[in-house]
Computed example of a mutant assay.
Amino acid sequence: MQKDQLLTRRRTLIAGAAALGAAGAAGVLATVTGDRAARPAAPAAGARAAHHPLKPSAYRLQPLTGYGPPRTVAGRPPVRSEPLLRVSGRGRVMVLTFDDGPDPRYTPDILDTLARYEVRAMFFVCGEMVPHNQDLLARMADEGHVVGNHTWSHPLLTRLSRGRIRSELERTCDVIETAYGERPEWFRAPYGAWNRATFQIGAELGMEPLAWTVDTLDWTEPGTRTIVGRVEDGAAPGVVVLSHDAGGDRSQSVRALRAYLPELLDSGYLVTVPRRQQA
Rank of each mutant, 00 (worst) to 15 (best):
H51M: 00
T220K: 15
E204K: 05
I110P: 14
Q277T: 14
A15D: 04
P56Q: 02
N149L: 10
P70E: 04
W194T: 09
S267Q: 00
L157P: 10
P43Q: 06
K55N: 07
G66L: 06
E118V: 11
P104C: 04
L96I: 04
V93Q: 09
P108G: 10
P102E: 00
S81W: 04
T12R: 11
W219E: 04
V87D: 01
P222C: 07
V175N: 00
V146K: 02
R80I: 04
N149C: 09
Y67T: 12
M207C: 08
P63R: 04
R276Q: 08
I201E: 01
L84E: 05
D142A: 14
V95K: 01
R39P: 08
L20K: 03
A193R: 14
G16T: 12
E182M: 15
T216V: 10
M94F: 09
L61P: 00
E170D: 11
T172E: 02
A236R: 01
R76W: 05
Y269T: 02
R166A: 11
L169H: 01
L217I: 07
L20W: 11
G247Q: 07
Y191A: 06
E118A: 15
L156G: 07
F199L: 10
R76T: 15
S153E: 05
T107R: 10
Y117M: 15
E82H: 12
V119E: 03
S167H: 03
L13T: 05
S243N: 14
S167A: 09
W186Q: 06
I14D: 03
V146F: 09
G181P: 10
Y191T: 09
T224R: 08
D109T: 13
Q200S: 08
R250F: 13
D112C: 07
A19C: 02
M1R: 10
R230K: 12
V79S: 02
N149K: 02
G202L: 11
G16D: 09
V214I: 15
I165A: 00
L29F: 15
T97Q: 04
Q134W: 02
A38R: 08
S267H: 10
A41C: 00
G16Q: 13
F98L: 13
R250T: 05
P209M: 08
L242M: 11
K55E: 13
P69M: 00
P43E: 01
E177K: 06
V240I: 15
A44W: 03
V95W: 08
P108T: 13
H51W: 11
Q5P: 00
R225L: 12
V95L: 07
H244L: 10
A23R: 07
